[in-house]
Design a protein around this nucleic acid. Structure first.
Lengths: 338, 338
DNA sequence: TTGTACGCGTTATCAG
DNA sequence: CTGATAACGCGTACAA
């Protein structure tokens, strides 16, 4: 059990016949180095298979070279939502080409805010992307108070941060509803997500706006988690209430899939008796029968946008004038359910 | 622009009127400290909102307090697979209750093995969980050669590591096929995943074994990525080949969903003319019409198992005798597609 | 039980 | 352009 000697910068320097400082400069490009010594150092490093000790580097340079992707997890199975999968992919993709590592932080709403504060500070990560932010709770506050740059995916519920990317969620609700109206629906229900999320708020008000613009009364409205079973619960609740409706705007495809399931079980034909529109244009919506008409929610684009925004801040390439939200436009994908 | 003074352990020590070493021991519990000074130090730390500098701690203790979840990403949209979402959730859940951070590493097959080697070393992470390992490629080798403990989710294709958790994938194939046989199918096609993955191998051989045990000839076999469109492609290929079949064993629900879609488009009734069984028992399989009969693939359990295995190694609670794979049993979930 | 002093591997600041 | 040398913040033998 002999202790394995870690190849350190000193070893490289010695092998190349230079001082440690010189080797550092040569490898990081952080200072003037002659071409000859540079190649010599690089050769030595390659031969010794040197790779810098991240912690040491972070300590000395006070740069963690890591960013956090924070996902508040209020409901147990939120990761089942394809939206988040694509967000993870998008973020990962952008940072893959950089020197930053991606630290995934799934924050439970009931664990101490100090836990997340510990991570969101300089020395641990250089910045963070927060997705699917819920409004209430100390977690949101802890995040707001972090001393590192934070970019949000989805307009933050409170706080005045302008560092976020989002789809125009009001438009999402409007587009979906307008389509249903065009198809002839007159009593449009809304199966919404949790009440404390800004996208939910915005999509719901888009729904309302489209209805009132058409002079139509709103149909029943229900809130539930962004899951298939959430959609089922809401759909059942609406059916049991006896409130009339001839269409459903579900705020995610997962919810819509649940709703379609309940409608089918109740022998209601989709779209014959009830038209359904979802949001996300996710795979699950292509599996339902009939396939789901859906409004896009470009998760990967949002993720990439947020990542680039964060990168440009970290690299100091962002003047304060450039700080403004980036809003993406949703798009209607018509399939057979509406 | 005054420089923000970071609250350091020295500050805490000073405030508590003790030496830094004492403060360190009090906070980490790594040495004898009197009860009174401990409370005093803790009070000071709380008041100053001290939180240790992770990099410094990692450097001094040569423990990164982080683990990596490595996901080789051969196909663009692999994260669309719910299996991986649940793996992420399971791993995250276990490590959430520890002091370890989760670093997500998505490794492209065509980027230099050195990139992943850099991460998988002491000083960066203390251990790693590798999921969905493909056989070929330098990445696999780079991972094998890492100097930190590695636990696999899914039996590694090559190498002799016994540190893995997996479902009994042969049983997965066997159970699915046996069920189809029991239902009266006699010509069972197999829509398999990529050829260089051990689960694919095992499920396929389970399919073969069940068929030969029943004295039945294997139906057509196709390989494609573990995605819905992969399932579509394979299904179309089988249809176009003209080879007869009256059932399909698809090696994931996503693939099965794609297959069902193609079958429906071809006016083939499921399960009337073609029975279909998938794997994963995922949400997407509940949205298809008819809902998918499926063999479970307990992603979260696998993830939790792997996480605990890694933790017990990191904590040194594992004698070499205990090193053996952990194999979970799959289970058939009968729905309407077969 | 507590304090002193050194080391962890890099980067950064100076002289030269 | 290069080489000493001082931080960076914390853990930990060792001595008191």
């Amino acid at each position: 059990m002999s202790k394995v000697h870690r190849v350190t910068l000193d070893d490289v320097a010695q092998a190349a016949g230079v001082a440690r400082a010189t080797a550092s400069r040569a490898l990081t490009g952080s200072g003037p180095v002659s071409q000859t010594t540079r190649t010599r150092v690089e050769a030595a490093a390659a031969q010794l298979r040197f790779s810098p000790h991240q912690a040491a580097r972070a300590l000395a340079s006070s740069q963690a070279q890591a960013i956090a992707l924070v996902i508040p997890e209020p409901d147990a199975f939120i990761l089942g939502d394809p939206f988040l999968s694509y967000v993870i992919m998008g973020v990962s993709e952008v940072f893959h080409d950089t020197t930053y590592q991606l630290i995934l932080v799934i924050a439970h709403p009931d664990d101490p805010p100090t836990k997340i504060s510990q991570v969101l500070r300089p020395g641990y990560v250089d910045g963070a992307i927060v997705v699917s932010q819920h409004g209430s709770g100390q977690i949101a506050q802890a995040i707001d108070e972090a001393e590192i740059p934070i970019v949000y995916i989805g307009r933050p519920w409170s706080g005045q941060s302008l560092l976020y990317v989002d789809v125009d969620n009001r438009a999402v609700g409007h587009i979906a509803t307008a389509h249903l109206l065009r198809q002839g629906s007159r009593r449009i229900a809304c199966i919404a997500g949790p009440v404390d999320m800004s996208p939910v708020d915005d999509r719901t008000s888009g729904w309302r706006a489209a209805l009132s613009a058409a002079g139509v009364e709103p149909g029943p409205l229900r809130h539930s988690p962004f899951t298939a079973s959430g959609g089922e619960v809401s759909m059942r609740s609406i059916l049991e209430s006896g409130e009339p409706f001839d269409a459903v705007f579900a705020q995610s495809d997962l919810m819509a899939a649940g709703a379609v399931r309940v409608l089918t079980e109740a022998d209601l034909d989709v779209p014959g008796q009830v038209r359904v529109v979802g949001v996300d244009d996710a795979e699950v919506g292509r599996a339902t029968s009939p396939p789901l008409t859906s409004v896009t929610n470009p998760a990967e684009e949002l993720a990439r946008g947020a990542s680039h925004m964060l990168l440009s801040i970290l690299d100091g390439e962002m003047s304060s004038e450039q700080i403004h939200p980036q809003i993406l436009n949703p798009r209607l994908i018509v399939r057979e359910s509406a």
